Amino acid sequence: MSAVEAMRLPLSTDLAGFVGLLQRLNLPFRVSEEAGEQVLWVPDERFAEQVRELYRRYPEGDPQLVGRVEPGRRGGAFLQQVKASKATSAVLLVTFVVAALTLLGSNPDTLHWLTFQDFRLVGEDRVLFRPLADGLAAGQWWRLLTPMLIHFGWLHLAMNAMWYWELGRRIEYRQGGPMLLGLSLGFGLVSNVAQYLASGPSLFGGLSGVLYGLLGHCWIFQWLAPTPAYRLPKGVVGMMLIWLLVCLSGVIDLLGFGSIANGAHVGGLLAGCLSGLLGGLLARRRPA
């Protein structure tokens, strides 16, 4: 291949872990020794840029993408993943704290501070919502974002947390923690507003709108500017889109499994596709 020099390092540098990472990611490379240094070669400058970024973040190998963990060291490996995914872990920690404070959405005394609109209970089964404009006029702008942190039940929390851990780490690894936080807040805002416009005053919450945004971001970004971090397991995008269509059909509501925030899902997905489009196009414009 017509090789491009990606990195040049002293012979004393141990590249074993990093080389293992490149092998797991199926990145084409070779290492040679020249003038008393190790030189890592790749096919073109695009690969070289990815390799440099990988080495800057994880010179000893990426703990997120290690396929096998030695028995007895799984706990240590998980702590490494948490340390390497600080933004992802921080969002999940705040989500768990909110779940505890709201008793998974069952404690109205704390829940009403975080919902899109303030509310109060009238009797046993009637909810009276305060107009959104009144809340915003009172300076309660956080309500535009905080519904993303509310979850109703253990299953709701566990599923959303699992997918945020999977998708969030990929974006943090590829584009950094500030980008992940920015995307999460942006998708949260869009999905919350979309759900409000779709359903009117109602109790809704969860990270699922954000998750569809992260999915759309990875999907379109990977299509335009392929990167190992955004190479999702086969069938994931199709499965999530099929699930979205099933929810939109109303079948879930008819079966009595509860209301689905379809507006949040669609709004998040569209916002994610847009951010993935912009990010992918910018990545392609970088000099090759």
Rank of each mutant, 00 (worst) to 15 (best):
G250C: 04
L145E: 11
P10A: 10
V31Q: 06
G20N: 15
G263E: 01
E37V: 09
A225P: 11
F18Y: 05
A137I: 03
E70Q: 12
S89Q: 00
V97Y: 01
L189D: 04
L181V: 01
H217Q: 11
H217N: 14
P287N: 10
W141L: 10
M179H: 13
M240S: 10
V193I: 15
A87S: 11
L183N: 02
L104V: 05
I150R: 10
G61A: 13
L149F: 15
G280R: 08
W41V: 05
V66N: 13
G268D: 00
G168M: 00
M159E: 13
S191A: 08
F187D: 05
G213T: 08
A133G: 15
T227R: 05
P201C: 11
A225K: 06
F119Q: 01
A288Y: 14
L211S: 01
P178I: 00
L27K: 14
D125S: 05
D44M: 10
A90E: 05
R285F: 12
L101G: 08
L128D: 06
V4A: 11
V42Y: 07
V82K: 03
I150L: 13
A77D: 14
V39P: 10
E34L: 06
R120Q: 02
P28R: 12
W243Q: 08
N160I: 05
Y230F: 08
G188E: 02
G276N: 04
R24K: 13
P228L: 07
A35M: 06
T13P: 12
F29N: 07
E45I: 12
S191Q: 11
W142C: 04
D14E: 12
D253I: 06
G135P: 11
L180C: 01
I150C: 07
G256R: 05
L11P: 05
M7Q: 15
H151D: 10
A87D: 00
K86I: 03
V237E: 08
L255C: 06
S208L: 06
L183K: 07
F204T: 01
G67W: 12
G267R: 14
L224C: 03
